[in-house]
Protein backbone atom coordinates (compact mmCIF):
# COMPACT_ATOMS: atom_id res chain seq x y z
CA UNK A 1 0.00 0.00 0.00
CA UNK A 2 1.03 3.59 -0.52
CA UNK A 3 0.73 6.01 2.38
CA UNK A 4 -2.36 7.62 0.87
CA UNK A 5 -3.99 4.21 0.42
CA UNK A 6 -3.14 3.36 4.00
CA UNK A 7 -4.81 6.56 5.18
CA UNK A 8 -7.99 5.93 3.20
CA UNK A 9 -8.10 2.33 4.42
CA UNK A 10 -7.59 3.46 8.04
CA UNK A 11 -10.32 6.10 7.88
CA UNK A 12 -12.74 3.48 6.57
CA UNK A 13 -11.68 1.01 9.24
CA UNK A 14 -12.05 3.59 12.00
CA UNK A 15 -15.51 4.55 10.73
CA UNK A 16 -16.57 0.92 10.67
CA UNK A 17 -15.32 0.37 14.20
CA UNK A 18 -16.82 3.51 15.74
CA UNK A 19 -20.06 5.18 14.57
CA UNK A 20 -18.95 8.40 16.28
CA UNK A 21 -16.10 8.95 13.81
CA UNK A 22 -17.00 11.71 11.32
CA UNK A 23 -14.95 12.86 8.32
CA UNK A 24 -15.41 16.29 6.77
CA UNK A 25 -13.62 19.17 5.10
CA UNK A 26 -13.29 20.72 1.68
CA UNK A 27 -13.90 18.32 -1.26
CA UNK A 28 -13.66 15.27 1.01
CA UNK A 29 -17.23 14.15 0.19
CA UNK A 30 -18.22 12.62 -3.16
CA UNK A 31 -14.97 13.86 -4.73
CA UNK A 32 -12.88 11.95 -2.18
CA UNK A 33 -10.44 14.75 -1.39
CA UNK A 34 -7.95 16.56 -3.60
CA UNK A 35 -5.34 13.90 -2.75
CA UNK A 36 -8.03 11.16 -2.73
CA UNK A 37 -7.49 10.49 0.97
CA UNK A 38 -11.22 10.07 1.54
CA UNK A 39 -11.93 8.24 -1.72
CA UNK A 40 -15.03 6.06 -1.45
CA UNK A 41 -15.89 7.04 2.12
CA UNK A 42 -18.90 9.15 1.17
CA UNK A 43 -20.40 6.28 -0.80
CA UNK A 44 -19.71 3.82 2.00
CA UNK A 45 -20.76 5.86 5.04
CA UNK A 46 -23.19 8.47 3.69
CA UNK A 47 -23.65 12.20 3.79
CA UNK A 48 -24.14 12.51 7.57
CA UNK A 49 -20.72 11.07 8.40
CA UNK A 50 -18.64 12.13 5.38
CA UNK A 51 -19.39 15.56 4.04
CA UNK A 52 -18.18 18.70 2.33
CA UNK A 53 -18.23 21.73 4.60
CA UNK A 54 -18.54 25.33 3.49
CA UNK A 55 -15.11 26.57 2.42
CA UNK A 56 -13.91 27.81 5.79
CA UNK A 57 -11.02 26.27 7.72
CA UNK A 58 -11.92 28.07 10.93
CA UNK A 59 -15.36 26.53 10.70
CA UNK A 60 -13.98 23.05 10.02
CA UNK A 61 -11.90 23.04 13.20
CA UNK A 62 -14.36 25.00 15.36
CA UNK A 63 -17.28 22.74 14.46
CA UNK A 64 -15.10 19.69 15.13
CA UNK A 65 -14.48 21.01 18.65
CA UNK A 66 -18.22 21.16 19.29
CA UNK A 67 -18.70 17.64 17.94
CA UNK A 68 -15.80 16.33 20.02
CA UNK A 69 -17.05 18.01 23.20
CA UNK A 70 -20.36 16.24 22.59
CA UNK A 71 -18.60 12.86 22.44
CA UNK A 72 -17.98 12.32 18.75
CA UNK A 73 -14.55 11.61 17.26
CA UNK A 74 -14.34 14.03 14.34
CA UNK A 75 -11.52 13.67 11.80
CA UNK A 76 -11.62 16.93 9.84
CA UNK A 77 -9.28 17.56 6.93
CA UNK A 78 -7.54 20.84 6.21
CA UNK A 79 -6.74 20.59 2.52
CA UNK A 80 -3.20 21.98 2.84
CA UNK A 81 -1.44 22.83 6.09
CA UNK A 82 -0.76 26.26 4.58
CA UNK A 83 -4.50 26.90 5.03
CA UNK A 84 -4.73 25.91 8.66
CA UNK A 85 -4.00 29.38 10.01
CA UNK A 86 -7.56 30.75 9.91
CA UNK A 87 -8.26 27.93 12.38
CA UNK A 88 -5.25 28.74 14.55
CA UNK A 89 -7.30 30.36 17.30
CA UNK A 90 -9.77 27.48 17.45
CA UNK A 91 -6.92 24.96 17.60
CA UNK A 92 -4.61 26.73 20.01
CA UNK A 93 -6.96 28.69 22.27
CA UNK A 94 -9.97 26.40 22.14
CA UNK A 95 -9.27 22.76 21.27
CA UNK A 96 -5.94 22.59 23.07
CA UNK A 97 -7.32 24.13 26.26
CA UNK A 98 -10.80 22.61 26.42
CA UNK A 99 -9.84 19.95 28.95
CA UNK A 100 -7.70 22.29 31.02
CA UNK A 101 -9.92 25.33 31.21
CA UNK A 102 -13.01 23.29 32.05
CA UNK A 103 -11.19 21.55 34.89
CA UNK A 104 -11.44 18.27 32.99
CA UNK A 105 -15.20 18.52 32.45
CA UNK A 106 -15.02 18.78 28.66
CA UNK A 107 -12.57 17.18 26.26
CA UNK A 108 -11.72 17.46 22.61
CA UNK A 109 -10.91 14.11 21.01
CA UNK A 110 -10.43 15.18 17.41
CA UNK A 111 -7.82 14.53 14.74
CA UNK A 112 -7.10 17.30 12.26
CA UNK A 113 -5.52 15.65 9.22
CA UNK A 114 -3.52 17.91 6.98
CA UNK A 115 -0.99 17.40 4.16
CA UNK A 116 2.24 19.33 4.67
CA UNK A 117 5.70 19.83 3.22
CA UNK A 118 7.35 20.54 -0.10
CA UNK A 119 8.57 18.60 -3.05
CA UNK A 120 5.46 18.95 -5.18
CA UNK A 121 6.28 22.33 -6.78
CA UNK A 122 3.51 23.95 -4.79
CA UNK A 123 5.09 27.27 -3.91
CA UNK A 124 4.70 28.63 -0.46
CA UNK A 125 0.93 28.19 -0.22
CA UNK A 126 1.11 24.44 -0.83
CA UNK A 127 4.42 23.42 0.74
CA UNK A 128 4.97 24.74 4.23
CA UNK A 129 5.71 22.70 7.32
CA UNK A 130 3.64 24.25 10.07
CA UNK A 131 4.45 22.06 13.05
CA UNK A 132 6.37 24.58 15.13
CA UNK A 133 3.54 26.66 16.64
CA UNK A 134 1.47 23.56 17.35
CA UNK A 135 4.43 21.86 19.02
CA UNK A 136 4.55 24.96 21.24
CA UNK A 137 0.96 24.45 22.40
CA UNK A 138 0.32 22.49 25.58
CA UNK A 139 -2.76 20.34 25.08
CA UNK A 140 -2.09 19.47 21.45
CA UNK A 141 -0.46 16.33 20.10
CA UNK A 142 1.44 16.70 16.82
CA UNK A 143 2.04 13.59 14.72
CA UNK A 144 3.89 13.08 11.42
CA UNK A 145 4.23 9.56 9.97
CA UNK A 146 6.89 8.70 7.41
CA UNK A 147 5.78 5.22 6.34
CA UNK A 148 2.53 3.68 5.15
CA UNK A 149 2.56 1.28 8.11
CA UNK A 150 2.91 4.13 10.61
CA UNK A 151 0.35 6.28 8.83
CA UNK A 152 -2.20 3.60 9.64
CA UNK A 153 -1.09 2.80 13.17
CA UNK A 154 -0.63 6.42 14.19
CA UNK A 155 -3.90 7.52 12.58
CA UNK A 156 -5.87 4.89 14.51
CA UNK A 157 -4.07 5.94 17.71
CA UNK A 158 -4.79 9.61 16.99
CA UNK A 159 -8.49 9.06 16.34
CA UNK A 160 -8.79 7.07 19.56
CA UNK A 161 -6.72 9.59 21.52
CA UNK A 162 -8.79 11.59 24.01
CA UNK A 163 -7.01 14.86 23.20
CA UNK A 164 -6.76 16.88 19.98
CA UNK A 165 -4.18 15.76 17.43
CA UNK A 166 -2.69 17.66 14.50
CA UNK A 167 -1.94 14.82 12.09
CA UNK A 168 0.57 16.04 9.53
CA UNK A 169 0.73 13.96 6.36
CA UNK A 170 3.91 14.40 4.28
CA UNK A 171 2.28 14.90 0.91
CA UNK A 172 5.50 14.19 -0.98
CA UNK A 173 5.36 10.69 0.52
CA UNK A 174 1.65 10.05 -0.17
CA UNK A 175 2.55 7.89 -3.14
CA UNK A 176 6.31 7.62 -2.71
CA UNK A 177 6.12 5.87 0.66
CA UNK A 178 5.08 2.30 -0.12
CA UNK A 179 5.21 -0.70 2.12
CA UNK A 180 3.40 -3.64 3.63
CA UNK A 181 0.39 -2.58 5.63
CA UNK A 182 -1.52 -5.32 7.33
CA UNK A 183 -5.27 -5.26 6.72
CA UNK A 184 -6.09 -5.97 10.35
CA UNK A 185 -6.57 -3.29 12.96
CA UNK A 186 -3.46 -2.09 14.82
CA UNK A 187 -2.17 1.03 16.52
CA UNK A 188 1.24 2.61 16.90
CA UNK A 189 1.72 4.28 20.28
CA UNK A 190 1.78 8.09 20.27
CA UNK A 191 4.82 9.73 21.85
CA UNK A 192 7.13 6.86 20.88
CA UNK A 193 9.91 7.27 18.34
CA UNK A 194 11.11 4.45 16.10
CA UNK A 195 14.78 3.64 15.61
CA UNK A 196 14.89 3.01 11.85
CA UNK A 197 18.52 2.07 11.72
CA UNK A 198 21.01 1.42 14.49
CA UNK A 199 24.48 2.90 14.51
CA UNK A 200 27.19 3.99 16.91
CA UNK A 201 28.83 7.08 15.36
CA UNK A 202 26.12 9.65 14.61
CA UNK A 203 22.44 10.07 15.53
CA UNK A 204 20.02 11.55 13.03
CA UNK A 205 16.65 12.68 14.39
CA UNK A 206 13.92 13.50 11.91
CA UNK A 207 10.25 12.91 11.18
CA UNK A 208 7.75 12.80 8.34
CA UNK A 209 8.84 14.12 4.98
CA UNK A 210 12.59 14.26 5.72
CA UNK A 211 12.88 10.65 6.84
CA UNK A 212 13.66 9.13 3.41
CA UNK A 213 16.52 11.59 2.78
CA UNK A 214 17.85 10.93 6.28
CA UNK A 215 17.90 7.20 5.62
CA UNK A 216 19.52 7.75 2.22
CA UNK A 217 22.29 9.84 3.77
CA UNK A 218 22.72 7.25 6.52
CA UNK A 219 23.14 4.53 3.90
CA UNK A 220 25.73 6.61 2.05
CA UNK A 221 27.60 7.22 5.31
CA UNK A 222 27.46 3.51 6.03
CA UNK A 223 29.34 2.87 2.81
CA UNK A 224 32.12 4.99 4.30
CA UNK A 225 32.00 2.97 7.53
CA UNK A 226 30.18 5.62 9.49
CA UNK A 227 27.46 4.02 11.59
CA UNK A 228 24.41 6.26 11.66
CA UNK A 229 21.52 5.69 14.03
CA UNK A 230 18.35 7.08 12.49
CA UNK A 231 15.45 8.01 14.75
CA UNK A 232 11.99 8.72 13.37
CA UNK A 233 10.17 10.78 16.01
CA UNK A 234 6.72 9.96 14.55
CA UNK A 235 5.13 12.08 17.28
CA UNK A 236 6.64 15.56 17.17
CA UNK A 237 4.95 16.69 20.36
CA UNK A 238 5.13 15.49 23.07
CA UNK A 239 8.35 14.01 21.70
CA UNK A 240 10.25 10.92 22.77
CA UNK A 241 13.19 12.53 24.54
CA UNK A 242 14.24 9.29 26.17
CA UNK A 243 14.96 7.51 22.88
CA UNK A 244 16.89 10.50 21.53
CA UNK A 245 18.99 10.98 24.68
CA UNK A 246 19.78 7.28 24.86
CA UNK A 247 21.03 7.38 21.29
CA UNK A 248 23.17 10.53 21.53
CA UNK A 249 24.74 9.25 24.74
CA UNK A 250 25.90 6.31 22.64
CA UNK A 251 26.95 8.17 19.47
CA UNK A 252 28.02 11.56 20.87
CA UNK A 253 26.98 13.26 17.63
CA UNK A 254 23.64 14.64 16.54
CA UNK A 255 22.15 15.86 13.28
CA UNK A 256 18.51 17.00 13.32
CA UNK A 257 16.61 17.26 10.06
CA UNK A 258 13.34 19.05 9.40
CA UNK A 259 11.87 20.99 6.49
CA UNK A 260 10.56 23.99 8.43
CA UNK A 261 12.73 27.12 8.70
CA UNK A 262 15.78 27.02 10.94
CA UNK A 263 15.13 29.62 13.59
CA UNK A 264 13.05 28.33 16.49
CA UNK A 265 12.03 25.27 14.46
CA UNK A 266 11.50 21.94 16.19
CA UNK A 267 15.08 20.91 15.40
CA UNK A 268 16.11 23.72 17.72
CA UNK A 269 14.09 22.25 20.58
CA UNK A 270 15.74 18.87 20.15
CA UNK A 271 19.17 20.51 19.94
CA UNK A 272 18.57 22.58 23.05
CA UNK A 273 17.39 19.58 25.04
CA UNK A 274 20.40 17.50 24.05
CA UNK A 275 22.71 20.41 24.89
CA UNK A 276 20.99 20.81 28.25
CA UNK A 277 20.82 17.17 29.25
CA UNK A 278 23.63 15.36 27.42
CA UNK A 279 26.32 17.92 26.59
CA UNK A 280 28.94 15.90 28.44
CA UNK A 281 28.46 13.04 25.98
CA UNK A 282 28.81 15.17 22.87
CA UNK A 283 31.92 14.90 20.70
CA UNK A 284 30.88 17.53 18.17
CA UNK A 285 28.54 20.49 17.85
CA UNK A 286 24.92 19.61 17.09
CA UNK A 287 23.91 20.26 13.48
CA UNK A 288 20.49 21.28 12.21
CA UNK A 289 19.60 20.59 8.58
CA UNK A 290 16.45 22.54 7.81
CA UNK A 291 14.79 24.91 5.38
CA UNK A 292 16.29 28.39 5.21
CA UNK A 293 14.72 31.29 7.09
CA UNK A 294 12.97 32.43 3.92
CA UNK A 295 9.42 31.87 2.73
CA UNK A 296 9.03 28.59 0.87
CA UNK A 297 9.95 29.32 -2.79
CA UNK A 298 8.41 28.02 -6.00
CA UNK A 299 11.16 27.75 -8.62
CA UNK A 300 14.02 27.41 -6.15
CA UNK A 301 12.27 24.73 -4.07
CA UNK A 302 15.15 22.30 -4.58
CA UNK A 303 17.61 24.82 -3.22
CA UNK A 304 15.49 25.58 -0.19
CA UNK A 305 14.68 22.08 0.99
CA UNK A 306 16.92 19.70 2.91
CA UNK A 307 18.16 16.83 0.75
CA UNK A 308 20.42 13.77 1.16
CA UNK A 309 23.52 15.78 0.23
CA UNK A 310 22.87 18.40 2.89
CA UNK A 311 22.29 15.68 5.47
CA UNK A 312 25.44 13.88 4.32
CA UNK A 313 27.41 17.09 4.62
CA UNK A 314 26.22 17.56 8.19
CA UNK A 315 27.20 13.97 9.02
CA UNK A 316 30.69 14.64 7.67
CA UNK A 317 30.96 17.83 9.67
CA UNK A 318 30.12 16.16 12.97
CA UNK A 319 32.36 13.18 12.20
CA UNK A 320 35.33 15.34 11.18
CA UNK A 321 34.99 17.86 13.97
Amino acid sequence: MTMIQAITHTLAQAMERDPDVLVFGEDVGPNGGVFRATDGLHAQFGEDRVFDTPLNENLIVGAAIGMAAYGMRPVPEIQFMDYIWPAYDQLVNEAAKMRYRSGGEYTCPMTVRTPYGGGIRGGHYHSQSGETPFAHTPGLVVVAPSTAHDAKGLLHASIENDDPVVFMEPKALYRAAKGDVSEGYYKEELGKAAVRQEGTDVTIVSYGSTMPMSLKAAAAAGEQDVGVEVIDLRTIYPWDKETVLKSVKKTGRLVVVNEAPLTAGFASEISATVAEEAIEYMEAPIKRVTGYDTPFPYTLEGLYMPNPNKVMQAIEEVINF
Binding site: L22, R49, N58, G62, A63, G66, M67, Y70, G71, E94
Partner: peptide, 12 residues
Amino acid sequence: IQAAGTAYAMKV
Protein backbone atom coordinates in the same frame (compact mmCIF):
# COMPACT_ATOMS: atom_id res chain seq x y z
CA ILE B 1 -18.93 27.63 15.74
CA GLN B 2 -18.49 25.05 18.46
CA ALA B 3 -22.19 25.26 19.28
CA ALA B 4 -23.05 24.66 15.63
CA GLY B 5 -20.75 21.63 15.70
CA THR B 6 -22.44 20.20 18.78
CA ALA B 7 -25.84 20.82 17.23
CA TYR B 8 -24.76 18.95 14.12
CA ALA B 9 -23.53 16.05 16.26
CA MET B 10 -26.93 15.89 17.98
CA LYS B 11 -28.56 15.65 14.58
CA VAL B 12 -26.23 12.88 13.41
